[in-house]
Computed example of a mutant assay.
Amino acid sequence: MVEYLVIGAGPAGLQIGSFLHRAGRDYVILEAESEPASFFREFPRHRVLATDDNSLFDGVPFGRYSKRAFPDADDLVRYLEDFARPLHIRYGTRVSDPAEYRARHVILAIGKKPHVPSIPGIEHADTYASAGTDPTLYARKRVLIIGRGRSAFETADNIAATARLTHTVGRAVQRIVKQGNEFVVAIDGTGELRYDKVIVCAGFRRDTSLDRPDAHVITGDSIKAIRHSARALHRTLEAEHHGVPWPHRKLRNRPDSLAATIASRARQIPEGLADVVVPQGQHAILYDEMPTTERNGFVVTSTQISHYRKNELIAVEHRLHRKPLERFFSQQLAVPCIS
C-alpha cells in the first residue's frame, strides 16, 4: 500500500513528486522507460526548444544548464535527470491498469502523444514522429505540412531551404489520395493539389488510456502550465487529506487596496486557475491559484473577476485595470469609491 501513486516521470510526474517528497508523503512514481523525461528525448524532433519557461518550481534554475534563447532539448533532459535523482521512482514499470496497485490516491502524469486527425487517406502521410529530419530528404520536393502549431512550423523551417515548395494548412484538408509517388490532396477553398511529401504535424493530445473517475490528472500545454497545475493539485491534496491550509494572505478590505492587488495579480494567473478573494470584515483573504471550481467571494482569472455569494453569480467585470476594478469593488462592497 502506498498513499500516492504517480504514473509518469515527465515534467508533471517529477513536479508533483517533488512536492510530495518535500512534504514527507508516502509516494512512488512509476515510469515505463528506463530514464525520466522520455518525451523530451524524442520531441521536439529538431532538438530546439521554444522560448518557454523550462524550469520547475523550487528546482535548480534552468539557466545553469543553458543560457541560449532557444535551448537545446538535451539541456532540458539533463535538467530533468538531475531533478529526478532524489525522488522515489521505479523505472521500467509499465502500467496497464492503475487498479492493479494498492494506492489511496492515483495521480496520472503520463503526458501527451502525437495527434493524427481523422482525414480520409491520412494513413498514407508521414507524421511528425516518423518523418525524417534531414533537410536533404526533401530537396526539390513539393511538401505539404498539415498543422498550424509549433511542430508544423518547426518542420517547415527545417526543410524550407531545400524543398521546392512548402505549404502549411490547418483544418482545410478534406482527403488524401496516393497516386504512384505523388499525393493528390483536396483542400477546402483551393481544390486538388499535388505533392511529393505530406507530413502530419497536428500537435499533441493528452494520453487518456489510463483515465479513471477517481484519479487526479496533471496536464498543460507547456512546462509552465504543468508546474502550476501540479502545485494546485498538491495544495488541494494537502488541504483535503492532511489538514494543511491553502496558502493565503490578508488584504485590507477596501476598494483601492483590493483593486491594486488584483490588477497586479491578474497578469500572473495561469489558465485554468483563479485567485479567490473572500471578504472577512475589515480584511479580505487572498487564496492564490486555486482550481476554478471555487465559487465563493471574488473569483479572479486572467480575463475577468466574478463575484459569487453562496455559489450564485452576482456580477462580472472584464476590465482588470485599477480604476475599473476600484469602481467594481465599490459597488460590490457597497462602500464609497476612494479617490
Rank of each mutant, 00 (worst) to 15 (best):
R295N: 05
F39V: 03
T155W: 13
T155V: 13
A161C: 09
A99P: 01
I176C: 04
G63R: 12
I145E: 08
D256P: 01
L80K: 02
L87S: 09
V143S: 11
N54L: 15
R205E: 07
A23L: 06
P11R: 14
R148E: 14
I269W: 09
F43S: 04
D214G: 00
T127G: 04
A109D: 06
E182R: 15
P324M: 05
A139D: 12
V95Q: 07
G92P: 06
S151D: 14
E312K: 02
P255W: 10
T292E: 15
Q15L: 05
V198S: 05
P213H: 12
E271C: 02
S38L: 13
S209F: 11
L56G: 12
Q174Y: 05
C201G: 07
E3V: 02
L313K: 01
D211Y: 15
D196K: 13
T133M: 12
H248N: 13
V276D: 06
Q332D: 02
V198W: 02
E100C: 09
L108H: 07
D221V: 07
E294W: 08
P135H: 08
I187P: 01
H124C: 05
F329M: 03
Y308R: 01
D211P: 04
L80M: 08
V198P: 02
H105I: 15
G297D: 00
I145P: 01
K113G: 00
V277A: 05
G132Q: 10
V300P: 01
Q332R: 09
G111N: 12
F183L: 10
R47Q: 11
G111E: 11
H321V: 12
R267M: 07
R175K: 08
P114V: 07
R265Y: 09
